[in-house]
């Protein structure tokens, strides 16, 4: 696809019209999604509607089932109950409308970054078009100088950018990001967040982002879904949606704004971190 006007959303890419990275955007609907592993219930009754082109941050403590929820959308795991639908069709196996960027880069060590990115291309992409798109994406994530390197020859941040490019190569309707910046140093993480915002501005696909970083959620998301177990619930009950917060302000947001500070404190409290009043 080479048009910047995404037919699914009708949204026009703002500043980065020259990059020609256009994605489709699909809606995602969670209806009563639950997941158990044996007798252990991880998720219970998760229901939320995600609009096309929306960026949703899924926030929660570690082990609360955030990643599981994402894997269910991708079709890598199947829910024990309920159903996830993408654009109205239920997900029953690995879904080609999704693209996944994992917490680790998960690049094939014997392939160059460029060849790794091309792994993400949709099936039956004509060779020339695929090559052009891979080159475009490599440039977009700033890896043009290292496209021929192997993953072990580049830094963690560069590998993670290649992983992101691989996911974008899929031209996904839903981009699933599982703490993709979690293992990076603080500075690289901020740069990657900005990069993601640039990409989303150029090609507004639907993004589900799992994170445990409240600031990251506030910086990137339209809405933040706080996942967790209710305080009064039984200890073996699965995690569900505690609250959904709409983040005010247009991106990119001022990381130090007062409004966000208040939200941050609220969300941290939801994660079990007490406010420290002066």
């Amino acid at each position: 696809m080479s048009t910047v006007l995404s037919p699914a959303t009708g949204l026009e890419a703002s500043t980065l019209t020259s990059t020609r990275i256009a994605n489709t955007a699909d809606s995602v609907s969670f209806a009563g999604v639950g997941k158990s592993f044996g007798s252990r219930t991880v998720l219970a009754d998760v229901s939320v509607e995600v609009e096309r082109g929306e960026v949703i941050a899924i926030l929660g403590t570690s082990g609360c089932g955030k990643s599981t929820l994402l894997r269910i959308v991708a079709g890598l795991d199947l829910p024990t109950s309920g159903v996830v639908s993408i654009d109205g069709t239920p997900v029953s196996r690995v879904d080609s409308r999704c693209a996944f960027a994992f917490q680790e880069p998960r690049l094939l060590p014997w392939r160059t970054l460029e060849a790794n990115v091309s792994l993400g291309l949709p099936k039956k992409t004509p060779k020339a078009a695929g090559q052009a798109r891979v080159r475009e994406l490599i440039e977009l994530v700033g890896l043009a100088d290292s496209a021929g390197h192997r993953p072990r020859e580049v830094s963690g941040g560069m590998a993670q950018r290649a992983s992101l490019a691989r996911a974008l190569a899929r031209n996904p309707g839903v981009l699933l990001l599982d703490e993709p910046f979690g293992a990076l140093d603080a500075l690289t993480r901020l740069k990657m967040q900005d990069l993601l915002l640039d990409i989303h501005a150029a090609a507004p696909t639907t993004i589900l982002l799992v994170t445990h970083d409240v600031d990251e959620a506030l910086q990137l998301a339209d809405r933040v879904v706080l996942l967790g177990r209710n305080d009064d619930a039984a200890p073996d009950a699965g995690a569900g949606i505690r609250s959904i917060v709409t983040v005010p302000g247009a991106r990119p947001r001022d990381r130090s704004s007062h409004e966000l500070a208040e939200l941050r404190a609220e969300l941290l409290e939801g994660l079990g971190i007490e406010r420290h009043h002066g």
Binding site: S155, K191, L195, D198
Partner: peptide
């Protein structure tokens, strides 16, 4: 577009290799 240049640690690795 964020200006992420080539990572210095990575370039040093590549020069060492070649």
């Amino acid at each position: 577009m964020s200006s992420l240049g080539a990572d210095p640690t990575a370039t040093s690795t590549s020069t060492r290799r070649s």
